[in-house]
Design a protein around this nucleic acid. Structure first.
Lengths: 144, 144
DNA sequence: GTTTTTGCAAATGATTTGCATGGAT
DNA sequence: ATCCATGCAAATCATTTGCAAAAAC
């Protein structure tokens, strides 16, 4: 028994939307799945380039946006000066160090339903909550 | 009976830290208090310029950072392409429109304690939670 | 063949930095 | 008189955009 092939799934979804299946999209998607952690566009490009040369940053950005629309990716939010994306689907939150910009995962549950409800009540649609914990990481705290 | 004079308070705090009391700092602080809503650096400059000409954007940025350190300001987080600051102290959350970047206040309570605790457990200090609700605002939803 | 994607290069735009002058102490 | 804060101009840097060439359909 094996997990559903990610390439096949992405291929199907793209076809269903009338969009094209390109090597770049497949490799970026597969790479993200294997990294399985929050990443910046630059980091994605670095990892992807080892498998498929000459991929450009604009392609990475547009593919990340596409995967976001497809729900295969979560946009963590701008942190430490750059946008972070996260292929992890389980609920978890992110710690951002205000000194060095490092980002770390934590497993915690934050109930943002009240805010989502308030958004809906205000006439907003497709509301989703992003929680970002800011603080000083252990390394930076120790270095002081 | 009247509220504590904001200028006097800022003056005292600055003196206590051995920092200087400048017209720019006083005017920016007073202006923020009167705006009493989330603002970008540009917006602050616009409002401040009506009272004190020739204030520069770098000064606005450094003063906003200073006021942040003094706890007179909350950094809402990068939203819609620019950093937002908020002089409102009561608990409230922010809605960011993913289409037009507009930001709106909502009064809702989100309990982020579990995440704060997890951060502390991971060895981080001075952790604070930022919640940002992303969605499509009523205007943008209607225009479609 | 037609239309979408890509890669390249250049543009954008918020925020930061360097430095000489002005101002607060 | 000293040293911090300001204004200006230029630098930075992630992200976006325009467009011709390449690839998927």
């Amino acid at each position: 028994m094996q997990k559903t092939d990610p390439d096949r799934h992405l291929t199907d979804v793209l076809h269903a939307r009338g969009q094209r299946v390109t090597p770049q999209r497949l490799v970026i998607h597969r790479t993200l799945r294997e990294l399985d952690r929050h990443v910046s566009a630059e980091e994605v490009l670095g990892a992807v380039s080892e498998r498929l040369p000459n991929v450009s940053l604009p392609t990475v950005y547009s593919t990340l946006e596409l995967l976001g629309e497809l729900g295969l990716l979560r946009r963590v939010g701008p942190a430490g000066g750059r946008m972070l994306f996260d292929p992890r689907t389980e609920e978890h939150q992110h710690l951002v160090c205000s000194v060095c910009g490092r980002v770390e995962d934590i497993d915690a549950h934050v109930d943002a339903e009240p805010a989502i409800d308030a958004a809906r009540a205000a006439g907003w649609s497709d509301a989703s909550a992003g929680v970002l914990i800011t603080g000083v990481c252990d390394r930076c705290a120790g270095r002081r």
